[in-house]
Simulated assay, not measured.
Amino acid sequence: MAEEKTNVMRVLDQKKVPYTPHHYAHPDGAVDGASVAALIDRDPAAVCKTLVTQGASKKYYVFVIPVLKELDLKAAAKAVGEKSIEMIKQAQLLPLTGYVHGGCSPVGMKKQFPTVLDQGVEGLDAITVSAGKIGAQVELAPAALAGLVRGSFAPVSK
């Protein structure tokens, strides 16, 4: 059965960025990243979560890191030239990005925020990120994703 295209997939198609879509069942809503990796049969080191943060300057930043790692807030602040950063509250996510918790993608947010991908994924052939809704992921080259979101690579996870 053909799955519907998400906004993320439409953006990738429009920008001619090659990707592989993955869909998984999620009867209980959002699932953790390790489960997503298992459901789509991918190495968790190459399955990434999208984290939205706010700096001391009140600017917003997006970080893409492997699902089994944590965002290193000090390293992340340094990567974007902020004194400090913190995760935004879950209630802010949908109004700010247009995405729900568990379905947040670095592609196609309401506004393009500075985006940093964890340096550990830079050398991988492909990484998987949310396709913008729970139950859908897109697999693409890290450099292609960074190019699309005007992102950079930095060591931001621990």
Rank of each mutant, 00 (worst) to 15 (best):
76 A>L: 00
15 K>S: 13
130 S>L: 08
145 L>K: 01
36 V>K: 08
149 V>Q: 03
30 A>L: 05
37 A>F: 10
112 Q>C: 03
82 E>H: 09
11 V>C: 13
138 V>G: 11
136 A>S: 14
41 D>H: 15
105 S>T: 03
51 L>N: 11
77 A>N: 12
157 S>P: 09
86 E>T: 10
41 D>K: 13
88 I>R: 08
119 Q>N: 06
53 T>G: 06
157 S>C: 05
48 C>K: 08
83 K>R: 15
5 K>T: 04
127 I>V: 15
114 P>R: 06
153 F>N: 02
34 A>N: 14
15 K>D: 10
151 G>F: 05
104 C>L: 10
27 P>K: 08
15 K>A: 15
73 L>E: 12
78 K>Q: 14
57 S>E: 11
64 V>T: 12
148 L>I: 06
122 E>R: 14
114 P>F: 03
88 I>Y: 03
151 G>C: 12
22 H>V: 04
6 T>V: 09
109 M>V: 11
122 E>A: 15
137 Q>W: 08
9 M>A: 10
51 L>Q: 08
5 K>N: 10
51 L>S: 10
131 A>Y: 05
141 A>T: 04
106 P>D: 06
86 E>R: 11
31 V>P: 05
79 A>H: 09
9 M>L: 10
137 Q>D: 06
78 K>I: 03
45 A>Y: 02
50 T>A: 09
149 V>D: 00
142 P>Y: 02
116 V>Y: 07
87 M>R: 09
103 G>R: 01
41 D>G: 11
100 V>K: 05
48 C>W: 01
3 E>T: 07
28 D>M: 08
52 V>P: 06
85 I>K: 01
118 D>K: 02
6 T>G: 12
9 M>S: 02
52 V>N: 01
149 V>Y: 04
39 L>V: 00
10 R>I: 11
130 S>V: 11
50 T>M: 09
67 V>W: 10
138 V>N: 11
85 I>N: 00
20 T>W: 01
45 A>S: 13
34 A>R: 15
156 V>G: 05
103 G>M: 08
11 V>R: 09
43 D>C: 08
145 L>H: 07
34 A>P: 00
88 I>G: 03
149 V>E: 00
89 K>Y: 03
1 M>T: 11
68 L>W: 00
42 R>Y: 03
132 G>Q: 02
53 T>A: 15
48 C>R: 09
90 Q>K: 13
107 V>E: 09
14 Q>L: 14
36 V>D: 06
80 V>K: 01
149 V>C: 01
138 V>D: 12
103 G>K: 02
88 I>N: 03
65 I>Y: 07
16 K>T: 13
41 D>V: 08
78 K>T: 12
95 P>M: 10
1 M>W: 05
36 V>Q: 04
64 V>M: 13
59 K>M: 11
6 T>E: 11
142 P>L: 07
32 D>G: 03
12 L>R: 01
61 Y>C: 03
62 V>P: 06
119 Q>K: 15
47 V>Y: 02
105 S>W: 07
142 P>I: 11
52 V>I: 15
122 E>I: 01
25 A>E: 14
119 Q>M: 13
148 L>W: 07
111 K>D: 02
64 V>Q: 10
33 G>M: 00
105 S>F: 08
16 K>P: 00
90 Q>N: 12
6 T>Y: 09
135 G>V: 00
132 G>C: 13
